[in-house]
Write a protein that binds this DNA or RNA. Structure first.
Length: 420
RNA sequence: GGGGAGGUGGCUGAGUGGCCGAAAGCACCCGCCUGCUAAGCGGGUAGGGGGUGUAAAGCUCCCUCGAGGGUUCGAAUCCCUCCCUUCCCGCCA
């Protein structure tokens, strides 16, 4: 969230950011409530201060008249504080619904049409035959099974079978190895159910509850991404400035309701209720967060390059980047069978927006007052669509699928999927 | 699941109704002292919020001793609920 002080001082900037993001900010309500709350708070504190003072007197004098008066003051202070607290929690609720600002380098725009390609790597492969889709290939090779998944769990679920499952496992291993050994990230294995406070920390709540699976009768939610537990790893901590940046990588299944995506990407292994993802997270400082964000994006791109997949890096425009992000890049890998790009990674820097919610701070130097950290995350990468891009890019005219060299050590001797 | 013990500052740990936002020790910071180092001496060091201030500083008030409620003029301290840690028993991967 944004700080109340900032909103007080820059209401127009907050309003403008909200409009350009298509996420209107309740600035006027906040400013009104803020005034009201502060007035109440002040009055309550005045009563309380006097009460505290007189109470000390009473301890000496034991004056019964004073005691009666103090009893009244205690009641008055209590009800005044209750009013102030009610206003404050109303105010806090509103603050959680104010979208983040965006960096000046973010393109202004309303829809994905105004996103900007900032980098491109490789090119669309010329296979020399009409490429098939991954789901066509996957079903005929017997490595993907959607029909059975529907019977057991419904649409947007899948089984991977044999070499398909192996491919998924190998990819996870490969990505984790690259990020931990070569990019300097520390691996985390996390809880996959988290409480509401954690979801608020990463800004999945309160606004996006309809995107999340909730455990019945408990304050637990299935994580939509490892970002949630990993970013919250240091919640309510004050870190040492010289520990930063902290770099984490985590593999986790991710669950999303995909509400609002009815009818979209219903065929294939693209938009699932459950999918695997390797996630990169950094906790850093205001001074370094934009550079660290660029580097994190490069770390994700490195995986695509090693896999030999053609992709584009896109800078998201204001209207397409989301509520909490300060700046965001998507990585879109080319899928020849589908004849389109698939989003395999989304990398974002949040400024101190999440850190403020999750109360993650650091001390720039010994004795200095704490400051909110900056958080960054990105997929490195999301599995299903990476698998799709691999299958469609490395397919052969005979329907078998070759493997990128980088992946071969992770496939237990399998070099060609479909060979018997 | 049943029963016991416990949750206090960066850490250890004292504190059972006002003198306590909190002894002492450790750690850390500043200064002094000493050929150097170590030791020693003196001082400092929790977080959040309100008011004042152009702002920083400063001044001042309020809140916070796991969380929330209650008793009381007054709660770290007493009572209730919840969460967590730990030990014993039970159950189970």
């Amino acid at each position: 969230m944004l700080s109340l002080e900032f909103i007080r001082a820059n209401p127009d900037a907050v309003r403008r950011a909200g409009e350009l993001k298509g996420e209107p900010a309740p600035v006027d309500e906040i400013l009104d409530l803020d005034q009201e709350w502060r007035a109440r708070q002040h009055r309550a504190e005045e009563i309380k201060a006097e009460q505290n003072e007189l109470s000390k007197q009473f301890a000496k004098t034991r004056d019964e008249a004073l005691k009666a008066r103090l009893r009244q003051m205690a009641d008055a202070a209590k009800s005044e504080l209750a009013l102030a607290d009610a206003l404050k929690s109303e105010l806090d609720d509103l603050l959680l619904r104010v979208p983040n600002l965006f960096h000046e380098s973010v393109p202004i725009g309303e829809t994905e049409a105004e996103n900007v390609v900032i980098r491109e790597w490789g090119e669309k492969p010329d296979l020399g035959f009409v490429p098939r889709t991954h789901f066509d290939l996957g079903e005929s090779l017997g490595i993907m099974d959607f029909e059975r998944a529907v019977r057991i769990s419904g649409s947007r679920f899948a089984f991977l079978v044999g070499d398909g499952a192996r491919l998924e496992r190998g990819l996870v291993q490969f990505m984790l190895d690259v990020h931990t050994r070569e990019h300097g990230y520390t691996e985390l294995w996390t809880p996959m159910l988290v409480n509401s406070a954690a979801m608020v920390g990463t800004a999945n709540l309160p606004k996006f509850a309809d995107q999340l699976f909730k455990v019945e009768d408990r304050d637990l939610w299935l994580i939509p991404t490892a970002e949630v537990p990993v970013t919250n790893f240091h919640r309510e901590e004050i870190l040492d400035g010289d520990q930063l940046p902290l770099k984490y990588v985590s593999y986790a299944p991710s669950w999303r309701t995909e509400a609002g995506a009815a009818g979209k990407d219903t065929r294939g292994f693209i938009r699932m209720h459950q999918f695997s993802k390797v996630e990169l997270v950094k906790v850093t400082t205001a001074e370094t967060s934009l550079d660290e964000f660029e580097q994190l994006t490069r770390d994700a791109e490195d995986i695509l390059q090693r896999l030999g997949l053609h992709y584009q890096a896109m800078a998201m425009c204001t209207g397409d980047m989301g509520f909490a992000q300060y700046k965001k890049y998507d990585l879109n890998a080319w899928a020849p069978g589908l004849d389109r790009y698939l989003e395999v990674s989304s990398c974002s820097v949040f400024s101190d927006f999440q850190a403020r919610r999750a109360n993650i701070r650091y001390r720039p130097s010994r004795g200095a007052p704490p400051r909110f950290a900056h958080t960054i995350n990105g997929s490195g990468l999301a599995l299903p669509r990476t698998i799709d891009a691999i299958m469609e890019t490395y397919q052969r005219s005979d329907g078998m699928i070759a493997l990128p060299d980088a992946l071969k050590p992770y496939m237990g001797g399998v070099e060609l999927i479909g060979a018997r």
